[in-house]
Amino acid sequence: MQSASTDDLTIVGTPDYVFGFKSDISQCFEMSDLGPMRWILSIEVQRDRTNGTITISQRSYIDTILACFNLQDANPASTLLQPGNALGRHQSPSTPCQLEDMRNVPYREAVGSLMYAAVGTRPDIAFAVTALSQFMQNPGRAHWEAVKRVLRYLKGTRELWLVYGDQCNGLKGFSDADWGSSTEHRHLISRYIFTLDGGAISWSAKKQNVVALSSTEAEYIALTHAAKEAIWLCYVLADVLDPQVRKHPLLLHSDNRSAIALAKDNAYHPRTKHIDIRFHFIHEAVDDNKITLEHRCTKDMPADLFTKALPRPRLEHLSALFGLRSL
């Protein structure tokens, strides 16, 4: 007879369901009940039933990767990437001496470690990680210094937690686009972030395979990218929380009024008829009352954090808008 084991299992549901499931499964398998979840996949979890909040953090993981790359005693950095100091392939090694200098530098390992934090609990570093991952094949000394700066930023902000439940405003989405600002390519990068009761639950930065001809077109394509995620999230939440979620349109914010107008009534069709038909998905979603679009000024647009390197005050302001803060 063969046996198998797992080192952890998280059960989510109403109290009756959770206790019933644990009772049933313990009759079939030997198990240890460790009580309320406190850790999962290197993510620390705290629950405040009095205030009705759940908070998650990767501060222990941050300590681990800092030690792994010998930066545990380094000075913290106040920002991620230097605003206005774009990284490029012109900084990659091009001579045998430069290649030899970077031969034993653990660039790929460091960026991979940062990726786990970026997709786990730290959306604030997502733009930096996206930018740094473009140089995985041939990183230069400037790229490595930028990686270390991100690690030092994490050291200085290790006490930031993602907080859920301090706002009872349901599911909201925020969409933005980076229109041709990259020095390495001119493809637009669409970005979104979704929050549930004040805390970020989904975020993305995707380089599209098209070159937008205007900011309206770029934002319109970004809205379509966000709308697909919005509809999927509604289905998930309907299954997990309440089937009524699917009956209400999801609120999606953009900072471009022209893109919102195009999605609502196709008012700009003569100037945008070249846009690929698949990007008109957002127009159908609005017509079907699955998405409600609303303008939000750029200074309060959380997704703007994923489009460029920002100074510390603005980084902190936008991070707080999706629930990332010190307890």
Results as ranks from 00 to 15, higher is better:
Ala126His: 10
Phe322Ala: 00
Asn104Tyr: 11
Glu44Cys: 10
Asp48Trp: 06
Cys168Met: 14
Lys155Met: 09
Ile62Lys: 02
Asp255Leu: 01
Cys234Gln: 15
Gln208Cys: 07
Gly323Val: 08
Asn85Thr: 11
Ser32Gly: 05
Ala200Leu: 06
Asn104Lys: 09
Ala118Arg: 02
Thr216Pro: 00
Phe281Lys: 11
Leu327His: 15
Lys299Asn: 11
Thr224Ile: 00
Leu223Gly: 10
Gln91Leu: 13
Ala261Leu: 08
Asn85Met: 08
Leu324Cys: 14
Cys234Phe: 01
Arg186Cys: 04
Phe194Ile: 03
Val12Cys: 13
Gln244Asp: 14
His274Lys: 04
Ala222Pro: 01
Phe279Ile: 03
Ser113Tyr: 07
Met1Asp: 12
Leu87Gly: 04
Arg246Gly: 04
Gly170Asp: 07
Val210Thr: 10
Phe322Val: 11
Trp203Tyr: 08
Asp101Val: 07
Cys297His: 15
Ala110Asp: 06
Thr216Met: 11
Met102Arg: 11
Gly180Pro: 03
Thr64Phe: 11
Ile125His: 02
Glu217His: 04
Cys168Asp: 15
Phe21Asp: 02
Asp101Leu: 12
Leu251Gly: 04
Thr53Pro: 06
Leu114Lys: 05
Ser204Asp: 10
Gln82Ser: 12
Ser113Pro: 04
Ala285Cys: 13
Ile189Val: 15
Thr55Val: 07
Ser57Thr: 12
His225Arg: 12
Ala222Arg: 03
Leu9Phe: 11
Ser181Ala: 08
Leu305His: 03
Asp242Cys: 13
Arg59Cys: 11
Ala118Asp: 06
Ser182Met: 04
Ile40Ser: 14
Gly199Lys: 08
Leu252Val: 09
Ala74Val: 03
Leu171Thr: 07
Pro313Lys: 07
Ser57Trp: 03
Leu241Asn: 10
Leu34Arg: 13
Asp124Trp: 03
Ser175Trp: 05
Glu217Asn: 03
Ala110Pro: 05
Phe19Pro: 00
Ala126Gln: 09
Leu315Trp: 03
Asp166Val: 02
Leu293Cys: 01
Trp39Asp: 12
Pro311Gln: 07
Gln2Glu: 12
Ser214Pro: 04
Thr216Gln: 05
Asp24Ser: 13
Ser113Asp: 09
Ala142Tyr: 08
Phe194Asn: 00
His317Gln: 12
Tyr17Lys: 13
